[in-house]
């Protein structure tokens, strides 16, 4: 119950920030619109709305990292979190309270992306549901990464690292904008070691009903999610102790 009270507060804090909403929702939607209209003039398979949309939903998740990291870093810099440290909230109440609200927000963002893509020509079928459910492990990864960054960086650093670096990383290394195979070499290897391209490929596979392709991608995503969550929990608890 305590945890839910705190989670409710975090939800309000995130959703009441107009910049959050503008970026988190606006940016992916604008990209969808731009790239799909680009495709109409210069046909490229990659920007076909059925290929593009699953990739964009994965890219949109990087904003979840930004949201959670910003909120936690801000809280840590204000006396408010210190005050809460004197209340019966436990370390795990804080961690869950910070992470839980972002899951429905991430799913909501994915749903909105798909809905937005329908008038742009998206094929409507049951697979959309699978793609939406399938985004959860990658959402957990992004949210945990936010907890990690928020626990070790200050507000300004979070802006740079999560706002600029991570969103670009997830954009370039997800194979949404260009075919990684065409670039090949080292770049492709790096991309394959990181979870972004796997998430994008898995979402595409789910959306297009190629379920046999899912397994190769879900494993690295799950491993990354579990690993980053564990590290984030440790880092959060450590900074809480080190006041």
């Amino acid at each position: 119950m305590r945890m839910l009270t705190f989670a409710k507060r975090c939800t309000k804090e995130i959703l009441r920030d107009p910049i959050n909403l503008a970026f988190g929702l606006g940016f992916p939607l604008v990209l969808l619109l731009l790239l799909s209209s680009l495709q109409k003039n210069i046909p490229a398979e990659l920007f076909d709305i059925d290929t593009l949309t699953p990739g964009i939903t994965v890219f949109g998740l990087s904003f979840m990292t930004l949201f959670s990291a910003t909120l936690i870093a801000k809280d840590r810099e204000s006396a408010f979190l210190q005050r809460l440290y004197t209340t019966p909230l436990s370390g795990f109440d804080f961690i869950l309270g910070y992470m839980l609200p972002l899951l429905p927000i991430a799913i909501g963002q994915t749903v909105i992306c798909y809905l937005f893509a329908i008038p742009l020509g998206l094929t409507v079928n049951i697979n959309i549901i699978y793609a939406i459910i399938g985004i959860i492990p990658m959402a957990v990864f992004n949210i945990a990464l936010g907890l990690l960054c928020g626990s070790i960086f200050g507000v300004k650093q979070v802006g740079g690292i999560c706002g600029a670096l991570l969103t670009n990383l997830s954009a370039w290394l997800s194979g949404v904008w260009f075919d990684l195979k065409l670039v090949g070499g080292f770049f492709e290897k790096i991309a394959n070691v990181l979870p972004f391209v796997h998430a994008a490929e898995m979402e595409k596979a789910l959306f297009n009903g190629n379920f046999e392709l899912v397994w190769a991608h879900i494993l690295p995503i799950l491993l990354y999610s579990i690993f980053i969550t564990a590290v984030a929990v440790l880092c959060f608890l450590r900074q809480m102790k080190k006041q």
Binding site: E13, A79, F80
Partner: peptide
Amino acid sequence: ETAVAPNL
């Protein structure tokens, strides 16, 4: 230091 949640 004053400690309130600003957006609430």
